[in-house]
Design a protein around this nucleic acid. Structure first.
Lengths: 340, 340
DNA sequence: CACTGGAAGTTTTACGTATAACTGAGATCT
DNA sequence: AGATCTCAGTTATACGTAAAACTTCCAGTG
C-alpha cells in the first residue's frame, strides 16, 4: 500500500493489482492490445480508480522529452481581446491533446522578466504576440518552436507568423470616412512599438496620399482610456487649422478615450466629430453613440496561431493567408459638415 | 560535446568544464561554498554560458517533488479584473521564487474539463475563484493545497479563503442611495451561482428590510453588457408599481447594460434613474455619465491570495481579515425625485 | 515430435537532476 | 609521527514513467 501522505504511483497501482509496473503503464497508456488480457487490464484500471492514481507529469515529461504544453505570451490582459485568442488557441490545442499556458507579460514598464521563470512548465513551443516584445529575446534564446502573432513577415523570415489583415481594415475605415466627405483626419495612435500599429500608420498615410486635399495629423497615446483621453483632449483643443473632422483610433480603448475628451470639450459625436476604433470590444457598444470599428476575430486568431504551431511541431509548413477583418458601421461616424 | 539537435544537459556542461555532473549541479544550484573552488566554479559557469545550458525543468521537478508553480483558476477573462488578480499573485509569487500559471475556465457552458489536462504542469498548489466553480470538483479530487477566492467561509471550513469585503461595499452603496432619497430599487443580479453574488443579494435585502417604505425587485442577467441590456430593458419597461428609481448592479458590466437599456427606453441617467455598479473597471469612466461604483482592489486580492497559499504551503495559518473596498461616487447617482 | 509463433506478461533501462555518501590529499593539531 | 580535520571534489542513487528487450507458457503446424 502507498505510504501515507504521498500520492500513489504506478508502482502502487501495480502492487494493488498484483502485476508489474510495466503492465500498469501499458494499460493506462492504452497500449495493451495483445499484451495484457482484458481481465488483467480491468483489474489494473479498477486499482487505479480506487487508489485515485494520477500520473506524475514531471516524470512523464522527463521520460517522453515533451510536455504537450505550449506557452501563449500576450500583453497585459486589459481587454477581452487576448482572452479570445487564448480561448481559440486552447480549443484547437485540446483537440490535439495539448494544453496552453497563458503568460501575460507584466503590466507597466517593469524590466522584462524571463517568461520561463514564471511559467515554470517545460514547454514544447511558444505562441507570442508581437505586442509582448520585451519577452522575445528570452524566447529566442531557447531553441523552442515559435509562432509570432501580428508580427512583421519581412522581419522574421524563418519564423512562422499569423497575421490579421489589419491593412485591409484600415483601408475600409479610411474609405468609409472619405465616402462620408471627411478630408481632415486625426490619427490617435498607440504608443507602442509594435508591427501591428506600424501597419495602421503606414496604411492610413498611404491611402490618404492618394486623395488630394486631405490632411493627417498623428498623436500618440498609451493604450488605455485614461491615457487616450489626455492625448486627444490636448490635440483637439490646440488644433491648428485645418481642424480634423474625424479621429481614427488604433483600438477601441483609444476611441473611448477620444469620446471622453470630446465630451469634456463639448464636441458632439458624430455631428461635429466622427470617431472610429479597431477590435470591436464589448466596450464599443457600451459607449454612446455606439462605435464604428473594425471587428477582429480574436478566437480565430488564436485558433490559427495554434494550428500554425502544431504544423511547425510536426514539421509541416503552416498554411498562409491573413485573417480577414470586417468594418462594422455604427453611430459614431456621420457625413462631414459641408465645407464653407 | 552535446549531440547535435539536443539541448545540452548538465552532463554536457560537466564534460566541457572537465568536472563531474555533481559539481555542475552544486555550482549552478549555488550550493558550492566550501565544496568547490572559486576557479572551478567559474569554469563551470563559463561552460554553461557558452553551451547555452538551461536545466531541464521536468527532471528538476521530478527530483525535487515540487515545482514552485501554482495554478490560478479564474472565470473567463472578459474584464481586466482577474488580470489584476493575476498581476498581484504573480508579483508575490516571483518574490518567493514561484511561478503562476493562469487557467481561465472555458467560456460558455461547455462541460467542465479537467483543468490539469489543460495546464499540464505539475503543481504545488491552486488558487481558485469561486466563480470558476465547475472546476472545483476536479481540484478537490487531488489533494493539492488550495486557496479559495471569494468563497463562503462557512461552507469551506478547513480550506483557506480570501475574501473582499463585499458586504460592506453593498451597505455603502445602499446607504448612499437611501441618503439620496431613493426607496424603490431594482437589483440587476448576476446569473451565476457564486457566493460573492449571494452576498450582494443577502446584504442588500437585509439593509432594505431595516428601512420602512422601501421596495426591492430582483432580475437576473448573464454577466455581459448585452445580456444585462436585455434583462434590464424588459424589467424597466414592464415595471409594475412602485417604479424603481435606482438600479443596483452586481458589477460594472451589468451597469453598462442598464445604461443601454435606459437609453433605448428614453430614460435619463441620473435624472430619472440612478445606477450603481461594482468593480470600478475602466469601463466605469468610459460610459456617460460616469458610473458610481464600488472599487475592488484586484491586485491586492491576488497578492493576498498568493500570500495565503504560501502560508498553507509552509504550514503556517494564513492571516485573516477581509480586503477593504471603497465606494466611488460619480455622476450616475442623483437625488430621487421627490415623491408626489 | 521438434519447432514456430503469439499471448501475457516481466525485467530492465533511460530520461536529467539534486544530493547523500564517499574519497584522497594536504594542512593542522597533539 | 600519527591522528584529525578541512578542502575539493567524485561516485552512486532516487525521483516516476514509458518502452525496448526479454521470458514463459501454450496452441498450432509440418
Amino acid at each position: 500500500m502507498p505510504r501515507a501522505g504521498t500520492r500513489p504511483t504506478s508502482r502502487d497501482v501495480a502492487r494493488a493489482a498484483g502485476v508489474s509496473q510495466a503492465a500498469v503503464s501499458l494499460v493506462l497508456g492504452d497500449k495493451w492490445r495483445g499484451r495484457v488480457s482484458e481481465t488483467t487490464a480491468e483489474r489494473v484500471r479498477e486499482a487505479a480508480r480506487t487508489l485515485g492514481y494520477r500520473p506524475n507529469l514531471a516524470a512523464r515529461n522527463l521520460r517522453l522529452g515533451r510536455t504537450r504544453t505550449v506557452l501563449l505570451v500576450v500583453p497585459a490582459l486589459t481587454t477581452e481581446f487576448f482572452a479570445g485568442v487564448y480561448t481559440g488557441a486552447a480549443r484547437v490545442a485540446s483537440r490535439h491533446g495539448f494544453g496552453v499556458v497563458l503568460y501575460p507579460s507584466p503590466e507597466g514598464t517593469g524590466p522584462a522578466r524571463d517568461p520561463f521563470a514564471s511559467a515554470q512548465a517545460a514547454l514544447d513551443g511558444v505562441i507570442a504576440s508581437s505586442m509582448a516584445a520585451e519577452a522575445l529575446t528570452a524566447i529566442r534564446g531557447d531553441q523552442l518552436p515559435l509562432v509570432m502573432l501580428d508580427s512583421d513577415p519581412e522581419g522574421s523570415v524563418g519564423t512562422a507568423t499569423v497575421n490579421l489583415d489589419i491593412a485591409h481594415g484600415v483601408r475600409q475605415v479610411t474609405d468609409h470616412l472619405l465616402g462620408l466627405g471627411h478630408r481632415h483626419f486625426l490619427h490617435l495612435a498607440a504608443d507602442v512599438a509594435s508591427w501591428t500599429f506600424e501597419v495602421r500608420a503606414r496604411e492610413l498615410a498611404a491611402r490618404l496620399r492618394e486623395v488630394p486635399g486631405t490632411s493627417l495629423r498623428t498623436v500618440r497615446a498609451p493604450i488605455s482610456i485614461r491615457g487616450a483621453e489626455a492625448s486627444a483632449k490636448a490635440s483637439l483643443s490646440e488644433a491648428p487649422a485645418p481642424r480634423p473632422t474625424a479621429v481614427i483610433c488604433d483600438d477601441d480603448q483609444l476611441a473611448a478615450g477620444a469620446y471622453k475628451a470630446a465630451r469634456r470639450l463639448g464636441v458632439r459625436i458624430p455631428e461635429e466629430l466622427s470617431v472610429t476604433g479597431m477590435d470591436d470590444l464589448a466596450l464599443a457598444t457600451a459607449i454612446d453613440p455606439e462605435l464604428t470599428t473594425v471587428r477582429l476575430d480574436a478566437e480565430l486568431f488564436g485558433e490559427r496561431g495554434m494550428q500554425a504551431l502544431l504544423a511547425v511541431l510536426e514539421g509541416r509548413s503552416p498554411s498562409a493567408g491573413d485573417i480577414p477583418v470586417e468594418l462594422v458601421v455604427r453611430g459614431s461616424t456621420a457625413p462631414a459638415r459641408s465645407p464653407h
